[in-house]
């Protein structure tokens, strides 16, 4: 592709040279309308290549978006059907947020339900154990023993019931993790789309820079540096070890703050 572009570049240059020569001849011959016509041709030639590339880019982007929708429409299942109705990547990512939020909520519901059950089990077992120790030490009167007898019976019954309930909660927590698979698929699709867009943009950049080289357009370099430290929100750092301006964990934060007198 690069070779083809270079060939196109050479062709363009050769063409440009021919026309430039023709232009000089026309000017020397006093043919002003002819010269003007040639200048218009040269301008058109310069523009045409960039217009072509923009057109190619637009078509490729359109195709990528169309493919994106067809891919998900082809997928089977109720979730996939729901996804196929989503027109764009933003909606897809919103879907992922909803999916992960639902899973987190479900997990926390189950945990919050289970915590008091586990606490009650432990507490009752501790109380019974203490009384059982008294029985072993023969510190218990017959009436207390009768009570203990019934309490143990009730505890054993409730323990098996509670443990079944907790098992059920654990299963629900396990099942709530299915978002990983679905959200992974959606995110991968969005990554693919972004990559396609990036490739096309890089092509356009390269084409534009070639046009600038050929036509000798020089752009002033933007030297306006942001004023002061940049404290705009960035979200989680995916690779903190590759950057010097971010901390790599709580220990770094503590160190920095203590160096500031905290």
């Amino acid at each position: 592709m690069l070779g083809a572009e270079n060939a196109g570049h050479r062709e363009l240059l050769a063409d440009l040279k021919d026309r430039a020569q023709a232009l000089v001849e026309k000017l020397e011959g006093g043919d002003i309308p002819g010269a003007t016509e040639l200048i218009r041709h040269i301008n058109e030639m310069r523009d045409r290549s960039i217009y072509q590339e923009v057109g190619k880019l637009t078509r490729a982007l359109h195709q990528a978006i169309v493919d994106f929708e067809i891919d998900t429409a082809k997928a089977a299942g109720a979730e996939a059907e729901k996804m196929s109705k989503m027109a764009n990547a933003q909606e897809r990512l919103d879907y992922v947020i909803n999916l992960t939020e639902k899973a987190a909520d479900k997990t926390m519901d189950m945990v919050e339900e289970g915590i008091p059950v586990a606490a009650r089990l432990g507490e009752t077992a501790r109380e019974l154990h203490q009384d059982w120790q008294r029985l072993i030490r023969r510190e218990m009167n017959p009436e207390e023993f009768r009570q203990l007898y019934h309490r143990i019976d009730a505890f054993l019954a409730s323990a098996s019931e509670d443990s079944a309930g907790l098992s059920n909660n654990f299963n629900e927590i396990l099942m709530a993790q299915d978002f990983q698979d679905l959200s992974g698929q959606v995110i991968r699709k969005v990554i693919t789309l972004v990559q396609e867009v990036e490739v096309q943009l890089v092509n356009l950049m390269r084409m534009a820079s070639q046009v600038e080289d050929i036509t000798g357009i020089v752009r002033p370099i933007d030297r306006t540096a942001p004023r002061g430290p940049d404290i705009s929100p960035e979200g989680p750092q995916i690779k903190p070890e590759t950057r010097v301006d971010v901390v790599s964990g709580q220990d770094d934060v503590d160190e920095l703050l203590s160096s500031l007198g905290f």
Binding site: D230, I231, V253, L257
Partner: peptide, 29 residues
């Protein structure tokens, strides 16, 4: 917060924050 730039932590300290915990964090932290 997940914000982990040194400049941000310094900014928060200067603005008068009393503590700064970066996500992900633990119950102990």
């Amino acid at each position: 917060t997940a914000e982990a730039k040194r400049d941000q932590i310094i900014e928060a300290a200067q603005a008068g924050v009393n503590g700064y915990v970066v996500k992900p964090f633990t119950a102990a932290v």
